[in-house]
Design a protein around this nucleic acid. Structure first.
Lengths: 347, 347
DNA sequence: AGCAGATGCCGAAACGTTCCTGCCATACTG
DNA sequence: CAGTATGGCAGGAACGTTTCGGCATCTGCT
């Protein structure tokens, strides 16, 4: 407990090094005109004394806050706010990791924040995960002039943010559909949430394109995201009760696939023998389901890392606003869509 | 985009109200000696102008940061860092919500932080979720004099923090064991992680006490937390292969129960008819497993809220350090431990 | 009237940075 | 050799807030 030891300030360093405060600041921040020898010496002294610039002073002077926030837009749509938690936690951890490495704090914004409350948060920028079309909170912070980087495009008409990390979900779904077709499926059904996010929109578009191209039937069920178990089960039942039921079911929403499995089991249908099942979002549930479920790995931690990195670069001025970055996804093939092997395969 | 509009400062309010800066500060913070009429008038002016004290200035002056951090100690033990994500996300959201209501930002600390890096984070206090015995990061911040509130006690010998939110896991496990006994189980096995956290320690102690008291056999398997699927399956197999296998299995680690179910299914054992199964941590997986799994609801969101609230109160000086608060848990009984009904029951 | 204490408000320092400006050398130019 | 550029550093204002101490004015009391 050496809390009595007063924190070392820039003044202490200047005194110790026998130079002025200005010189110390310039030396540490790489500004000004200094002799290399002086710069090195001051950096050494600062390191030895354990000096760290105080964030509040720097921010006060610079008009910044040194903080970015993470706002999970899609989560607010869920009354309980508790769907896809694993996905968002992974994203948050990735973002926190990268932000901290840049000396930026990642503050977590809870779900269900009013736009006013959201606008009152003191941050330099915002990462919006899965922006929902027309989210009033996102609009509020954008109107405020806050720098925003989204994970997935903002489907709101006219919305333009500083940056975006996105994946090619059309290609990803297409890859999955091709895999299912390879395994012999001809009547592939898709269960997806409404079209509030770019992700769900792209899935729907890719599915429609595939059906048109292959001349295969369009077996598409939209489900509300909450309560997921009930709606997913109902959608599955509806698909199975149709005159010509599917021989493969892709369940897009995070955590929905187990409910599909349950309904199939109740009806005595075997997976993958009678029906193939795949999930749109990989997560801890998928490899442990019975059978393990083929799923698209959206790499949420990497998305968080890249979003934080991009936001930091834009705030620093190293990157022009208005950019997009592509994040590759991966198809994790598991037993639910293959009977030749139960081992996990990378595709 | 009215980012051009300069932010309104205390000086603007003072000028508008025709008083000094000091008077405005006193009026808004409830300090100083002011006529009630003056105080009300200034507050009204400030409200009308949309004034909010700038955090960095306040913090610079006050020597605070206005931030608290959340550190998930148990997560660092997992190489992938990805176990129990749902639990921690719920906790984080609860904490963020309450912190923000107190005008405190909750900054998320990523897993795998070195103690030095952790100590360099600028915050007034720290919430440590599930402190692991001897966590060097926790020790580092405690030595620094940071105020720490833990969720669950810190099992490290000699560790004493400012506050603690804890649940009576002995009673909770005892309640579960009694429920299982009521359902006819006589040979109840426990699968739990090592004894690094207070939670796992209490579970072990409660289980031992129960066995001794009931004279029932002690069927206790400790599993490493990662990779959970493999170890849980192995532990289940070991229990079943014993000369006298259990008729009920309690799987404590978050997300472990489905693996128990899988092994049972592979062996042709029916749940709950042949073996009862229960989980130590409720979560989104449990109600959707096949069959739905009875589990102890640890109320992580509420734990987060209370921890943030307690930490804020201590930092404010409204609460003496050294307190503990009890958080009740709830047993969610589901089909995996009852054949009379499949509906979820509250106990 | 004179004095003590209470009441109501204000001036200015301080928190720790960053950065604009200025000063003094020295080197270079014509 | 005067004039000018440039390298190397320091002074000090500014960021917006809190807070200590102080200055009036007013009230009540002797």
């Amino acid at each position: 407990m050496r809390s009595g030891a007063r924190r070392v300030t820039i003044r202490d360093v200047a005194h110790e090094a026998g130079v002025s405060i200005t010189t110390v600041s310039d030396a540490l921040n790489g500004r000004g005109r200094l002799a290399d020898e002086t710069r090195d010496r001051i950096q050494e002294v600062a390191r030895r004394m354990g000096y760290r610039a105080r964030a509040s002073a720097r921010n006060l002077r610079g008009g910044r806050t040194g903080q970015i926030a993470l706002y999970c837009s899609f989560l607010t749509e869920v009354p309980g706010g508790m769907a896809g938690l694993g996905y968002y936690m992974a994203l948050a951890m990735g973002a926190a990791e990268t932000a901290l490495a840049e000396d930026i704090g990642l503050v977590l914004l809870p779900t269900g924040l009013t736009p006013e409350r959201l606008a009152a948060v003191e941050v330099d920028g915002l990462i919006v995960a899965d922006p929902v079309m027309g989210d009033p909170g996102v609009r509020a912070v954008a109107d405020l002039g806050l720098t925003v980087v989204t994970c997935e495009r903002d489907p709101t008409p006219g919305a333009a943010h500083a940056g975006c990390i996105r994946s090619d979900h059309r290609a990803a779904l297409r890859g999955l559909l091709e895999h299912l077709a390879d395994q012999g499926a001809g009547r592939i059904a898709l269960i997806a949430a409404g079209d509030e996010t770019a992700w769900t929109q792209e899935l729907g578009a890719a599915y429609d394109a595939w059906c048109a191209e292959q001349g295969s039937p369009r077996l598409f069920e939209r489900v509300a995201i909450s309560p997921l178990p009930h709606f997913t089960a109902a959608a599955t039942a509806a698909l199975l009760d149709a005159p010509e039921p599917p021989d493969a079911i892709v369940c897009a929403p995070d955590g929905g696939a187990p409910h599909v499995l349950r309904v199939l089991e109740e009806r005595g249908l075997r997976v993958p023998d009678d029906v193939l099942v795949a999930a749109g979002v990989d997560g801890p549930l998928m490899p442990v389901a019975m059978p393990p479920v083929t799923a698209i790995d959206l790499a949420p931690a990497e998305a968080g890392r890249r979003a934080a990195s991009m936001l930091a670069a834009i705030l620093r001025g190293d990157l022009e606003p208005g950019i997009e970055e592509d994040l590759p996804t991966r198809l994790n093939v598991r037993a639910s869509t293959t009977n030749t092997t139960t081992a996990e395969v990378r595709a």
